[in-house]
Design a protein around this nucleic acid. Sequence first.
DNA 1: CCCTGATTCGC
DNA 2: GCGAATCAGG
Length: 165
Amino acid sequence: MEWNETIIGELKALWAEGLSTAEIGRRLGISKNAVVGKAHRLDLSPRPSPIRRTDRPQGAQAPAPRVTGPTLAPLPSGPQTIAAPTAPAATTVSPVAIKPVAPRRLAAVAPAAVARVSACCWPVGEPGKPGFHFCDGAAVAGKPYCAEHAQLAYVKIRDRREDAA
DNA sequence: CCCTGATTCGC
DNA sequence: GCGAATCAGG
């Protein structure tokens, strides 16, 4: 697996969009283990794990009893709360992130652009092709897009169906 | 059984 | 560094 900057950017983008590891793996054509492993290595967001490792049958070393500090960091309303890969409630809004051509951020642009959560990450152009860039406008609070692109990204289901069909 | 993410460990 | 195998919970 070639983890060049582009694909790492894709991984980060999809990861940030709240997709499951398996889903990311499917989209990138790799296994979910690869996704998880790389994400872990990249120190990506420790997403809410469905499990809680109680015991270590393998190593069997009891790790230092972590002093359960109130390290609970409730993520602010980020993209991951709205970009569910599965079908959202019909009456609410739905990000087009579930569409085949999902707006996504690619780290190929610049680290700064990715780091700045407040910048609109609406893709302009074809990823990988010259001239491709992100809107980079001021993003709406809690959303990865600027007001203009947020309108495109978050459309009502009933409005979208004609468009999508 | 399907899904999920985390960790381990041979490579 | 990589990721399959494995663990573990829903």
